[in-house]
């Protein structure tokens, strides 16, 4: 079956039909683990009617270049679509890559209007170089979840279950954000694990589970939304989970400051937050 995330996430996804999650089958498949990840999920903002109140003051136009963390790829594509519906003369152009690479590019002078980072470390690099217009702002949170084989044959329901020595567990390397968050969460829960591999990025963790090479892996909830049917998600209880805050900022030397401001406003708007929520992120 498909990703069985917490109910609100699933409902959101089905409602909007966004984030390339295919429809089909009964929507309310009983989640094996039903803890809701986050009460703050902007479930109220579901009826995201385009052109609501969010960006009322004037339309922007031209190209808006956004340097965005790779984990935002699917979500931001939907964001851009909705944004363009509001601002027909504006085009959002993305450069998706690892946040570290993006930060380096910006510092080295890549012309961009907005930076959406997956962590504060890289945003700080840019900010310390005096390249942001205002104080960076958290626009979305991501949380960790356990990706397991469809059907959850090992019956994973908490981080503690990952300590099973029979289990092939993969994590992201501690050098990358997802890996350090996972390590943090495991440490917080007092769980000692013996991972088979420390993958270079979180997508590789997911693909190892999808391919059946790993029994479980710790990924972002947002990753699970677009994952294949071979995988399902197990929600990590709030108490054990870690919140990854994504900061966004307009860039000082960007050629389209109005566009940057409008884009950031849109991302922070109810509509933008709803789209991000559909894609597995946790709104702010």
């Amino acid at each position: 079956m498909r990703t069985r995330l917490a109910v609100p996430l699933l409902l959101l996804a089905l409602l909007a039909g966004a984030c390339s999650i295919e429809d089909g089958g009964p929507p309310a498949a009983e989640p094996p683990v039903a803890e809701r990840p986050d009460e703050q999920t902007p479930g109220a903002a579901t009826e995201a009617s385009p052109g609501s109140d969010a960006v009322g003051d004037g339309l922007v136009e031209g190209e808006i270049v956004v340097q965005a963390a790779a984990s935002l790829t699917d979500a931001f594509a939907d964001v851009a679509e909705a944004f363009s519906a509001d601002h027909p003369d504006a085009t959002v152009v993305y450069n998706f890559a690892g946040s570290q690479a993006l930060a380096t590019q910006i510092v080295e002078g890549a012309p961009a209007d907005v930076f959406a980072s997956a962590n504060f470390t890289q945003m700080d690099v840019v900010a310390e170089n005096g390249l942001v217009v205002d104080e960076p702002e958290v626009f979305v949170n991501n949380q960790l979840a356990v990706a397991v084989e469809a059907g959850n044959p090992f019956g994973i329901s908490s981080l503690a279950d990952l300590a099973d020595p029979e289990l092939v567990l993969v994590l992201a390397a501690p050098d990358v954000p997802a890996g350090s968050f996972a390590a943090e969460a495991l440490e917080g829960a007092g769980v000692e694990v013996t991972p088979a591999s420390l993958e270079v990025d979180v997508r590789s963790v997911l693909s190892k589970v999808e391919l059946g090479e790993a029994d479980a892996g710790i990924v972002y909830t947002s990753d699970l939304v677009t994952a294949s049917d071979a995988v399902e998600g197990v929600v990590i209880p709030e108490a054990e989970n870690v919140v990854a805050a994504y900061p966004i900022a307009a860039l000082d030397e960007g050629p389209n400051p109005e566009g940057a401001a409008a884009f950031i406003d849109f991302v922070l708007s109810a509509e933008g937050q709803a789209i991000l929520g559909e894609c597995g992120f946790v709104g702010v």
Partner: peptide
Amino acid sequence: TITFAGNFPGRTQ
């Protein structure tokens, strides 16, 4: 290597 063997210090890194 990274695709097939993964990445673990001392084992496949």
